[in-house]
Structures are given as C-alpha cells and as structure tokens.
C-alpha cells in the first residue's frame, strides 16, 4: 500500500506533469537550415521555357517541360521520385529573379559555364541572310551581330532551339550533337553504306531501260524506316537518330560508279591509273573487272576509259517526311 502512495506522490508532481503539457519540439529539429536543399519550387509566371534546367539535370527523368494551355507556355515539372536534389537546375536558370528555388542555391549567379553542352548551335555564315530574327527570338541574349556577321555566344546559350524555329533558311542554323560521337559515326557509316547499295541496284536497273537518256536526272526514294531498326540498336533514341540523319543528308554527296563490262574491249589502260588497285584484268573473259570494296570513287578510270565502260553519277539527298529523296545526276566531267 505504501508503494502505491509513493508512486502517486512521485508521478503526480505538478512540475512533472507540466513538462508533458507544455512540451515543444526543439526548433533545431523542426526548422530546416536555410541552405537545406529541398525539392525545387517552380514559379510558373517567371518561366521563359528555355529548357536550361532540363539540360542541366544529371538525373534522367527528374525534370520535364510540360505545356500549360492556360499560360500558353511550357514550364518545368519536377518528378520527386527521380530528383536527387543537387540544385543544379536552380543554378543554371537564366531568369531574373529565378524561376526555380531551393535552399540558398537561388542566390548563386550564373557566371560560370556549368550547363552541359550536349548540342551545339552553329550559324552557317554562307547561308545566313542577316534577317536578325534569331537575335529577337533569343531569350537569353546569346546571339549578337558584329561587323555584319551573326554569332552565337556558347557561354550564354541554353540550347533551347528557339533560333532554329524562327530561322527562315533551312540549314542556316545547325544543331550539332557533341555527345555519342562514336555512335554518330557508326550511324553515318550505316546510312552511307545502305544508301549506296540502294542506289547501285536502282542505277543498274534504270540504265538498262530502253528509253534511257544519259543526260536526264534520275529521282529515287529511300524510306528511313529501312535503317531505323539497326540504327536504334547503335543509339536507342529515335529523335536523336532522326536529327543526326537530317544533319548529314543536307551536305552528303555520294559518287556512284557503274561498270558496264559489255562495252569493255580489254585495252587495260585504266589498270595502271587506278590508285588502289581495284581494277583487275580477267584473262578468261577478256575484260577488266572492278572491286567495289577497294574503289575510292575518284573517277580517274571514268576519265581514262575511251569506250565509256565506267559511268559516274553524283547523288544528293534531302530528308522529308521520313523519306530520303535522292537526286542522281550524270557527271559533267568528260575524259
């Protein structure tokens, strides 16, 4: 009995009970420090939808530009399950004041080149008509005109691509990927190889038509879907592959050499001229044969041959609606 009295005496003390009633959390635990990097907060009204935050993010899929119909603008949305809270997007944001905020990172000014360059925007001075539309379109003031030459300041560029959209000349501003260089080379090699194969087959067919006119242009088509599957094995990004193909088709030029053995009289003039030894004389048939794997397409044999055995065609390309349009032109060089 005495122990029960003791317990009541011990626990029913006024001071002891008061501690429970007035309990407060330690402010250090409840309040995060001023630098604490929480998930970035987005203020839609300041955004210029340049996409610098997306380009800078090291975590895939953590930040995306989502289009808002009401504001007619795209603004960043943060996926909290993928965000690693590095605060990089806040640091690169070019608006003043910043669209994104986290901790004290929004105080850091964008003085340094920390935005990773995956694409490089280059103005082709030869094609540029100096309309200066891109200068007005650029939201960060990276494009400037000096001595009538328009240049892009790479340290200010945020790779948003607005200049390409406004440019009236196709190919005057180019978007060049600087990552995945090895994969790009492989894709270009694949494209050139498959184009050449396709052209060779078609040229042989067209040349043997009865109403063939050697002065006429030959127009062909090559659907991009033929190589897409193999290209995606090299680089699994359909958008990138299309852009790489688009960039390369603008300036690609392929020389096609045809070989008509029926015309050959076996004079062997071309064999000594060939720089790689691609031409060999076949004694059984009495004609000269060409090895396309060794051939450089230099057209020396075409200029040497007095009987017109080799034919030289120049192919130019244009990408439109997922098809490559091919224009084959007989060469103007005469031997």
């Amino acid at each position: 009995m005495s122990s029960v009295i003791w317990y009541i005496y011990e626990f029913a003390r006024k001071k002891w009970i008061k501690r429970f009633l007035d309990a407060k959390t330690d402010p250090e635990i409840a309040e995060s420090p001023s630098r604490f990097r929480d998930f970035p907060q987005v203020q839609k009204e300041l955004c210029i939808s340049c996409g610098a935050c997306v380009a800078s993010c090291p975590s895939p899929g953590a930040i995306k530009l989502v289009r808002d119909d009401e504001m007619e603008m795209a603004y960043p949305v943060i996926n909290e399950s993928a965000c690693i809270r590095c605060g990089f997007c806040v640091e690169v944001c070019p608006t003043e004041p910043k669209t994104l905020k986290t901790g004290e990172n929004y105080l850091i000014k964008e003085e340094y080149r920390i935005l990773p360059q995956e694409t490089l925007y280059v103005i082709d001075d030869y094609l540029c008509i100096r309309c200066e539309k891109c200068i007005d379109a650029c939201k960060v003031g990276a494009i400037s005109s000096k001595d009538n030459i328009i240049t892009i300041d790479q340290s200010k560029c945020v790779s948003c691509g607005d200049c390409i959209k406004t440019c009236p000349i196709k190919g005057a501003i180019k978007e060049v990927f600087i990552t995945n260089i090895d994969e790009q080379k492989e894709i270009i090699n694949l494209l050139v190889k498959s184009l050449e194969e396709a052209i060779n087959l078609e040229v042989e067919r067209v040349r043997k038509l009865p109403d063939y006119d050697p002065e006429k242009l030959i127009k062909l088509e090559f659907p991009l879907s033929k190589i897409m599957e193999r290209a995606l094995e090299i680089l699994p990004d359909e958008e990138k592959v299309t852009k790489i193909v688009e960039n390369i088709t603008d300036r690609l030029k392929i020389n096609v050499i045809t070989w008509d053995e029926e015309k050959c009289k076996g004079c062997r003039l071309c064999i000594d001229e060939c720089p790689t030894g691609a031409l060999t004389y076949n004694e059984e048939k009495g004609v000269t044969e060409r090895d396309p794997d060794k051939c450089l397409r230099c057209s020396i044999c075409y200029q040497t041959c007095p009987f017109g055995v080799p034919g030289l065609y120049t192919a130019r390309f244009l990408l439109r609606d997922g098809r490559i349009l091919i224009t084959l032109k007989p060469s103007q060089i005469r031997g």
Binding site: P33, R35, F36, R37, N105
Partner: peptide, 21 residues
C-alpha cells in the same frame, strides 16, 4: 554538413574550379 552544404549525405558541394557556396 547539412548546415554548410544543404544535405546530410550527398553534398553536391564541389564543382570544377572551386566550391558552390
């Protein structure tokens, strides 16, 4: 470390050319 860099584990504090804050 949380107070100085903003995070307890992954600091994101170093950058080429110095530190961020």
């Amino acid at each position: 470390t949380e107070m100085i860099t903003g995070n307890r584990v992954h600091y994101a504090w170093n950058i080429v050319g110095g530190v961020r804050m």
